[in-house]
Structure formats: structure tokens, C-alpha cells
Amino acid sequence: MIVLDKVDKVFPGTTIPAVNQVSFQVDEGNICVFVGPSGCGKTTILRMINRLVEPSGGDIYIKGKKVSDKGVNPDELRREIGYVIQQIGLMPHRTVEQNVSLVPYLLKWPEDKIKPRVKYLLEMVGLDPEEVSRKYPYQLSGGMMQRVGVARALAADPPIMLMDEPFGAVDPIVRGRLQEEFLRLQKEMKKTICFVTHDINEAIKMGDHIVIMNEGKLVQHGTPMEILSEPADGFVKDLVGTDREIKLLELTKSKEIVKRTDDIPSEVWEKDSFILAIDPVQRALETMMKKDTNIVGVRDETETIGTISWNDIKKLINKISGDQ
């Protein structure tokens, strides 16, 4: 869907490239998270995809089409790409409704199509259209503003979204809630999303794919599991942190390590120690401690599909701790 091929960016007046020979690919319907310290070039990459910044070298393709082609008008390109930034940038002089309908107006949608669309979007991001439509940005809380920002970016139903620390300006509790709601939305929307953050936990939580950047260079890319289990070098290891075992337990779904069997030990039935297949492995561990057992049963929506034992969890952890 989005392909970067040896992309460089050297800003005028500097000699050190902000982005240095970066190549990767984002698959359709995936969330690709760029993570790294500030100044590592992750935001620049994002802004090159919608041509807010022009690359100094290399090529960027969206759906096989080169974005820097002469035929592509950058303004029109951007109208097809949702854009959310940390500071949100809601228009202070316009109501929530006017803010959300901005891109549809730019695309000259008919009036009668815009109104219901705004209502639908506001409901989708968890806001009450009756309550907020006529409000101005300063009357909203930080979390509400972020929601409006996301609704605005989704207004014209763009296939691609660029999100630069979209939940960075709110407190951790609200952030967690926004992240979960957004993941739920994404399950239905299946957008192709480029997501920038400096928070590795957010990256692991949100990303189908993670790109780790440092000093303009791509250090490692892969699934969260790959990043956690096989950090490419010391930089990635430091970034991932000392608690990567715990992160792994949070990240891995029980169904990924479940031993499929019909033979459920009686201990499980007696102690009623069951978890759901979509629960993280961490839940299995908690249940074991609570019920004082070393095996739990795993259930699908309707039936019991297998078990996870204490040894299974140890094996999972050993997979990443083995090299320490």
C-alpha cells in the first residue's frame, strides 16, 4: 500500500540527514508504528508521505503510484489521506461540526451528504453529536478534542491515515481508553495507518508492524513479537526496556500458545479456572495465582479448546530471555 524506497531527507542548512536511506513497506489494512527518540526522523517520514515535506532522495509510492509524480497535486493528495497531529490543530473559530466537515467541503461533497456523515463520525468516535456539534474547540476537554481530531481525519473516509502522536496530549488513563477505542474502530475500518509515537508501549499495543528509528536511520522493523523477542541491537533493547517479558505476556493472546486438546484435566473443572482465547497470556498467569493451580483451560466463545500450563508460559518467556 505504502512503499518507501531509499528515502533521504536533508533539511536546508543542515548537513546531517534527518532521514537516511529508509526503505520499508506498509501493508494494506495494517497499523505501522514508527517509534524512536525525538529527532529520529519519524515525524519527517510521516510528513513526506503526504508531501508536507519533499524528500531529498528516494521514492515514495502509494498504491503503486509515485507521490512525487508531476501529475500529483499535493493538496489533492492530502485530501485523500487522513492526518492527525498531537496538537490536533482544531480551527478555533469553527464549531466541532464545521471542523469535522472540513475535508468533505474541500472535496465539494453535496451539503445533504455532509451533515449525516458528521453525525455518524461523531458517534463513531464516542461523542454525542447533539451535545458537541455546536460547541467550539475551547469548550472541549483534551480527550474530546482528540476524538474530534480523529473524526475530522476520517471525515472523507480516506483509505490511509497518518497519525503523529495522536494521543500524546492527554493523561495516561484517557490515552489508554482512546487507544482501545481506536483499535476497535480499526477492526471495522481496516485503514492503512502510519502511526508515530515515542512510547514503545503504545507502539507494541497499537502496531501490527513496528519501525524503530534512530538518528534518521531505520534500526529494526517487524511485528511487536519480533521486536520484543529479537531486538536487533543494544539501542532497541534499551528502547524496549527491562520489562519486555511482561510486555510479551500482555501482548501475546492465549490462543497463540494454547495446547489444543479435548482432554481437560479435572483440576481445571474443579477450580473453575478458565480464561478466554482472546485474553492475553498475562490473564492465564493471574488466574493460576488466584486459583493456586498451574494449569488453566482456554475457552472460545462457546467451547473449551485446550489448556495453558505453567510450563507453556515459561517456554514463551524463555524464547526471549534465552539470549540474555
Binding site: 508536507l52 492530502r78 492526518y83 497531529i85 490543530g89 482544531l90 480551527m91 478555533p92 474541500l106 475530522r152
Partner: peptide, 13 residues
């Protein structure tokens, strides 16, 4: 404020 302009540009104004 610049985020407002950045957002405007980013949305294709």
C-alpha cells in the same frame, strides 16, 4: 497557532 495551519495543510487546503 502553527498546529492549526499544519492541520489545514495536512488536510489538503
Amino acid at each position: 497557532e502553527w498546529p492549526v495551519i499544519e492541520a489545514g495543510r495536512g488536510m489538503g487546503m
